[in-house]
């Protein structure tokens, strides 16, 4: 009796252990199931590189290049801001801050990670958007730049915590060796600590970027949502994620538009998959 019970429980544990694989595959399959149908009407090449996105005109034009550019532009901006600031903050926390302040700073970073993206979007709308508008004398503050700043902020917790872990895992002897040779603390950080943790920091950057590309709500609320090819960082753009979130509500199930939004989902899934697998490889290389 007890044996049987344990046998069942252990099988259940094994099944749940495999659940993550099951769900990843399931997500991908359902995206494919709904998304591949769009290629009956649009060729993959035209879908990815078509320059106009007019999903409800007759006939619909389903080129997602403006959306890809929108995502890239916002992500690039966010990366330029968040990488130096995030890695700098990680170095400060891991190497320089005194123990007590360190705890406060870490709590602050955790706090940021916990704030829901819709709240950050709301705050961005009310503070950042008017600021960008008045500083650059624009007709609207809902621009790629506003999105980049907000997203940089949202990538910070990931970058800081993963990079800090990477710095932390550098063997103490490296640091002590460098200091013993008479290097200053900064020289030790710059010449020894950062190179030794480079693959972990790279993973931190990649995971941060992954977070940015996938972010939806805040970006939808403050980038203006214009699905046109952007020619500057000071114009409204529309990202891949925001397109899905904004349009799926109106798309009819089974319509071309519906399939196209799922196809965008496939693109997003593949991008995040690639980023996460690569980041994971970097993290394992370190160990």
């Amino acid at each position: 009796m007890r044996k049987l019970k344990e046998f069942i429980i252990e099988k259940l544990i094994l099944i749940c252990g495999l659940a993550s694989i099951f769900f990843v595959v399931l997500i991908f399959l359902f995206l494919l199931k709904e998304g591949l149908a769009v290629f009956k009407t649009v060729g993959p090449f035209k879908f990815l590189f078509g320059k106009s996105w007019y999903p409800i005109s007759e006939p619909a034009q389903l080129g997602i290049l403006p959306l890809i550019f929108g995502s890239l532009l916002v992500t690039l901006g966010a990366a330029i801001i968040s990488i130096p600031v995030g890695v700098g903050c990680a170095v400060y926390i891991a190497e320089i801050a005194p123990a007590k302040i360190k705890e406060i700073l870490k709590a602050g970073i955790e706090l940021l990670a916990a704030i829901p993206s819709v709240v950050l979007g709301f705050v961005g709308m009310i503070t950042l958007v008017p600021l960008v508008k008045s500083v650059f004398h624009l007709p609207t503050g809902l621009t790629a730049l506003s999105g980049s700043i907000m997203l940089a902020f949202m990538a910070m917790p990931t970058i800081v915590s993963v990079a800090e872990d990477a710095l932390y895992s550098v063997p103490k002897t490296y640091k002590e060796g460098a200091l013993a040779l008479g290097a200053t603390h900064w020289q030790t950080i710059w010449r020894v600590m950062l190179p030794a943790s480079s693959s972990g920091i790279l993973a931190a950057v990649m995971l941060g970027i992954g977070r940015v590309i996938g972010e939806t709500m805040a970006v939808m609320m403050i980038t203006g949502n214009a699905a046109v090819m952007p020619n500057s960082i000071l114009v409204p753009v529309r990202t891949l994620t925001a397109t899905i979130a904004a349009e799926m509500g109106e798309a009819v199930v089974g319509s071309e538009h519906y399939f196209a939004l799922f196809a965008i989902g496939i693109v997003l899934f593949i991008i995040s998959f690639a980023i996460n697998v690569t980041a994971d490889l970097f993290l394992h290389k370190r160990q």
């Binding site: 993550s20 399931l26 972010e215 939806t216 994620t241 939004l261 899934f269 995040s272």
Partner: peptide, 15 residues
């Protein structure tokens, strides 16, 4: 698990 954590939230919505 890493990938599940990294899938964009809007893709979960689609799924």
């Amino acid at each position: 698990i890493v990938n599940l954590a990294g899938v964009p939230s809007v893709v979960y919505g689609l799924f």
